[in-house]
């Protein structure tokens, strides 16, 4: 059929290509132009303005710090969850269902949930007070407590974003026939060896997808940070938002957007290279 009419596949993918081109590529080109031009001429003035801003270095540092802390913890927790649930027979679906609840919560809502726990009049302080640990309201989210603020944001992000990693990893684990682990067990591999030498290499594709997805999302972190820390904890997307809305400077906001895109692309490339998946070595 398609051999006689080779244009049919192209016709079928045309709508999606046109849609993406219109709503993605065009704004992308516009944004890049906005970032790299000044009064209609190519210029690095916006970039310079971004870099010299007092919050720039802090936002870069905070975003990277958060990503470096949050993503590995999420991968580790998701691997542990996936491995544990694999041992469960009855009730497996229910457990998975409960574990994926955070997937259905918007990031701003998640931020507000944690705000209600950690703010001065929140549940956490009430608990500490009733246990007699603190005598009066303690502050966790202010600029005076940067470590506590960082931990709070990291915990909220881990709570919110681990479910998606777990879903991908559980899917990956399901692809691994149980005979591989059984064979390894019979030939003398203990639980850790089985995990490191058999399971982990075999779920490499899932691991790669999860890492790319989670890292890109981690560089785009915004709503949770905004809800918990406001401007006390500047991050890249937060700065883009401020330049756009507070400062009404669309050009510097655009430079931030381009910077985030470059970082995400670089991270993706690094993962693709470092965790190269050789189809020859898959089950």
């Amino acid at each position: 059929m398609t051999q006689n009419r080779p244009w049919i596949p192209y016709l079928l993918i045309l709508p999606s290509v046109a849609f993406l081109a219109l709503l993605f590529v065009v704004p992308l080109v516009q944004t890049i132009w906005l970032a790299l031009s000044d009064n209609g001429a190519p210029s690095l003035a916006n970039a310079e303005r971004m870099v010299t801003d007092i919050n720039f270095t802090r936002s870069v540092r905070n975003t990277f710090l958060l990503t470096i802390v949050v993503v590995p913890v999420q991968i580790a927790i998701a691997l542990a969850m996936g491995t544990m649930v694999a041992k469960v027979g009855r009730g497996r679906e229910t457990i998975l269902w409960i574990w994926t609840i955070p997937l259905g919560i918007s990031d701003l809502a998640a931020g507000l949930v944690w705000l209600s726990i950690l703010q001065n009049t929140g549940y956490f302080n009430s608990l500490l007070f009733s246990l007699g640990v603190i005598g009066r309201q303690a502050s966790w989210l202010s600029y005076q407590t940067p470590v506590a603020l960082f931990i709070a944001i990291a915990v909220a992000e881990i709570w919110r974003g681990t479910a998606i990693v777990m879903v991908i990893i559980v899917a990956g684990l399901n692809q691994v026939p149980k005979e591989f682990k059984e064979a390894a067990e019979i030939f003398g591999a203990g639980p850790w060896t089985r995990f490191w030498r058999i399971t982990l290499p075999l779920i490499r594709p899932a691991l790669q997808s999860a890492l790319i997805l989670r890292t890109v999302l981690a560089f785009e972190v915004f709503a949770v940070v905004y809800a918990l820390g406001g401007r006390n904890f500047p991050v890249l997307v937060g700065e883009a938002y401020n330049w756009q809305n507070q400062n009404q400077n669309y050009s510097v906001a655009a430079v931030y957007a381009v910077l985030i895109m470059i970082i995400s692309l670089a991270a993706t490339l690094i993962y693709l290279k470092a965790l190269k998946v050789d189809p020859e070595r898959l089950p």
Binding site: E179, F180, E182, A183, E185, I186, G188, I198, R281, L282
Partner: peptide
């Protein structure tokens, strides 16, 4: 534990580790 029983097993679907060379597979035990 299976590893302490002094036995080896061949599985129906072979269960040859796809991410190891034939040499490493044979050498695994």
């Amino acid at each position: 534990a299976p590893k302490d029983r002094g036995l080896a097993m061949v599985f129906q679907n072979y269960a040859v580790f796809p991410h190891m060379t034939v040499y490493e597979n044979v050498a695994f035990g």
